[in-house]
Simulated scan of single mutants.
Amino acid sequence: MRLLILTKTLDCLGENDAPIANAFRRLGWEVILGEINAVAADDYRIFTRGALVARDDDPYHPGEAARGNRALYFLDEFQLVWVMTQPLDRVARDVWQMLWLASQKTGFVNSIEGLMFLNTKHALGFLLPSANRAFSFISNDFSSLWKLYQEARDQRWVAKPPNTSSGQNVFLLPPNGPNVRTILQCLTGNADVQSLTSGGLSGFRAKYAILQHFIPEVAQGEKRVIVVRGKVVAWHGREVNPDDHRSNITQGGKLISVDLHSGEIELAELIGKRLLAHGINFFGMDMAYPYVLELELTNPGGLYDTALVSGVDYSDEAAELIVAQLKK
């Protein structure tokens, strides 16, 4: 059996690339690490550049380069393809189109449709019960967002783009904040300013932004939960950086060991079942119970970080759940 893991670059493996590759190799699979941005087609047959993980090689660790010779691999020669990252913007449309075509003949851990349409903050209203999500207003019109903020001056808000991760461009907006107008203009592309200064001749500049109620529970930290085939497999906590409002590890948050109570497990597995219906077998979620803040469908850190804080590697359990589905 052969698994192709599509990652950003073969020169620096991600948090899931290494442990998942190791786990599937322990199950006896042949594992190839491939580059998602190198996806191409030979007479409409989809392939990419990759490197074979040798069976007798040392285990991989995040941040390492894929060892061995680089070669070309056709996707239809694999029993399973795992997309671990999103393609770069410049090539994303073509890559997603080719991967969708390849998925009509080859099994994918997470469906291309699910990765394209549900790996976004827009989808939270579709996937989450109303009691488990914060009120959000989404628009590419600065004036609409600014008006909402002005009408609820006592409300604390969070403003962010709908399609970023790792805490990028996430702003905490206090009541009567002096820079809120500027932040909302920036997040929506400074479209109003552009039209005033050049008559709008430079083209369409508007960008979408989310204005969302601030959730006080976040100050106590968040929990990252990994769900595989609708089952909670691994989790860890993240303490908020004292100099920031974000708990993302990339923004200075601190990993901690935590427990999950029955309500958190039940909510995570409910969302897992909803995503299963759309072909998503592996994902991560950020929770400040009873609220879910984020769903990560491509490369959610969690397996590796959980092993760091708990000393237990759950990648074998994740791999076994994925393989078991193939046998049905």
Score class of each variant (00 low, 15 high):
282 F>W: 12
96 W>M: 06
100 W>G: 12
40 A>L: 10
303 L>T: 03
9 T>G: 07
35 E>P: 08
284 G>L: 05
212 Q>I: 03
130 S>R: 15
119 N>M: 10
241 N>P: 06
117 F>V: 11
315 S>T: 06
189 G>T: 05
227 V>F: 05
278 H>Y: 13
169 N>D: 13
103 S>C: 02
218 V>G: 07
198 S>E: 15
124 L>Y: 11
252 G>Y: 05
262 S>P: 08
111 S>G: 04
47 F>K: 07
114 G>L: 10
14 G>F: 08
55 R>T: 13
188 T>G: 09
59 P>S: 03
258 V>Y: 01
38 A>W: 06
286 D>L: 08
309 V>S: 05
73 Y>V: 07
137 F>R: 04
295 L>Q: 00
155 Q>V: 12
237 G>I: 07
4 L>A: 12
268 A>E: 07
228 V>W: 02
102 A>C: 10
289 Y>R: 10
193 V>T: 09
277 A>F: 07
33 L>T: 05
182 T>M: 11
239 E>A: 10
88 L>T: 10
1 M>A: 13
255 L>G: 04
22 N>V: 08
58 D>G: 02
217 E>K: 07
163 N>E: 15
68 G>E: 09
71 A>S: 14
108 F>A: 00
44 Y>I: 06
258 V>D: 02
235 W>I: 13
237 G>S: 00
197 T>W: 12
256 I>H: 06
141 D>Q: 06
212 Q>D: 02
134 A>I: 04
89 D>C: 11
221 G>C: 08
202 S>F: 15
231 K>R: 15
133 R>Q: 15
65 A>S: 12
187 L>F: 02
11 D>I: 03
